[in-house]
Amino acid sequence: MAQKILEAIEQAGTNFVDSVARFLPRALVTISIVVVGWFIAMMLRWLIRWVLGRLGFNRFCERFDLAAQLKMVGLPSAEALAGVVVFWIVWVGFLLSFVNVLGFTMLQGLVDGFVLFVPRFVVAIAILVAGFVFGNVAWRATLLVAVNARVPSPRVLSGAVRALVLILAAAMALDQIAVARTIVFTAFAIAFGAVMLGLAIAFGVGGGPLARRILDHWFPERDAPDKDEIRHL
């Protein structure tokens, strides 16, 4: 009996040692991957910032008001932000790769999901940035044209244009990463339709004379004499 117990304990010990012997190299490899991954992510972060710095990315963002908007919401500069995003994508990628190394088959789905998610996330970020840039350019263009054309409430008009572009970009980005796709789509369709209908009704009911003035301004009679008495040239 005692012999059997000893044999069982010995077997358990042998199994434990075997398990440790099998696991330890994987653990060391995992630690190595994590450490090396961290270094690589840090290097890529530095590299991205350096390359964007050389390309004048911050100046580009300043040109489209992106820098000011980032600052307003407490985010770092555009170059630093791009570096941070790249760091976390690479770092999380390395962290998840240890699942393969350790043989955690249960977590394999998570890894696959992440691999599929990263490109969509990058595209969503690109859509957001493009929406932001386009929204600001459209805002400024509308504001300047409206001020120079003496259109009433130019800030409201240009703000509405920017808001529409940003909402559209945000909806597209959320759709890209498939976050609550149905809700986003439905909410966007309802909100957009409501705003457009509201604007159309408001303009039709209250803005008839304004519409006439705008159309007269946009499509002047070809041979109409210049009403501006001041000769600028």
Partner: peptide, 15 residues
């Protein structure tokens, strides 16, 4: 220095 689109700069000077 092209602080923004150049045609926007000239448009902003008009007023």
């Amino acid at each position: 220095h092209s602080v923004m689109r150049r045609d926007h700069i000239t448009q902003a000077l008009l007023p």
